[in-house]
């Protein structure tokens, strides 16, 4: 198995384990604004995906991604199946030539674009797009503009996704079942954005583990993401 492929299989296993551990948490978030099936659906889908990835014979990362996407598409159900799975199948083609910083950015951008198109959702609709967009934009900027190593770019992306998840709380849902609640959706954290963050956190943890480094701490020291309270920093300079 290629080293990349083995890392991808390990990442899928880690995501499956994390989603299973967070199953009740995700279901609880979904029961507040949806039909309370996100935790169960995602746990079932990722468990099947981990098994399918494990059964592959000497896969490269693109093949792992495609297999996981197809499995999620048929096993997750609801809107999460086509959004998480369908987008992954589509974006996986960007990894056909192998994984490096450039193809990883292309993969991330294609994935985001597909989720936006398929779900007809944009930032501010209280969906997974609110976590995914800052993560993908930050990853791209960190690689292409700041010239950071991919692992640090990924750490910043995770940090950005975390802020995106927090952003879903005080805004009104415009897409998905939560949008039927109108203003009552305000004050709730989006389950799809939350599971997107969990997936990114596991990708980072596995990548750091494979590289034999600690996952970089980026919060509040990131050049792409300002301090939580910029005024405080400014007053120290005075």
């Amino acid at each position: 198995m290629t080293e990349d492929g083995a890392a991808a299989v390990a990442a899928v296993a880690a995501v499956a384990e994390r989603i299973e551990a967070e199953r009740d948490h995700l279901t609880e978030l979904d029961s507040a604004i949806g039909d309370a099936d996100h935790g169960g659906n995602m746990a079932r889908g990722w468990a099947a995906a981990a098994e399918a990835a494990r059964d592959l014979d000497d896969p490269d990362t693109g093949t792992v991604a495609k297999t996981v996407g197809k499995t999620l598409m048929s096993e997750v159900g609801g809107a999460s199946g086509p959004l998480f799975g369908g987008s992954l199948v589509f974006a996986a083609a960007e990894l056909d030539g192998g994984v490096d910083a450039e193809t990883a950015v292309a993969f991330a951008e294609t994935y985001l674009e597909k989720v936006e198109d398929r779900g007809d959702a944009r930032v501010g609709d209280q969906t997974m797009v609110d976590a995914l967009t800052p993560a993908v934009h930050t990853f791209k900027k960190s690689i292409e503009t700041d010239d950071l190593p991919p692992i640090e770019a990924l750490a910043k992306a995770v940090d950005a996704a975390e802020r995106g998840v927090a952003f879903t709380v005080p805004i009104r849902a415009r897409k998905g079942r939560a949008s039927y609640l109108g203003w009552r959706s305000v004050g709730h954290q989006d389950p799809g954005a939350t599971s997107t963050l969990f997936i990114l956190e596991e990708l980072l943890a596995v990548a750091a583990d494979r590289l034999g480094v600690d996952a970089p701490e980026t919060d509040a020291t990131s050049p792409t993401i300002p301090d939580e309270d910029p005024d405080e920093g400014a007053s120290e300079d005075d």
């Binding site: 598409m73 159900g77 809107a79 199946g81 086509p82 369908g86 398929r118 779900g119 998905g176 079942r177």
Partner: peptide, 13 residues
Amino acid sequence: LGSAVMNADVAVE
């Protein structure tokens, strides 16, 4: 409705 539209979209592709 909803996810049926998305799944049909995937199937069309």
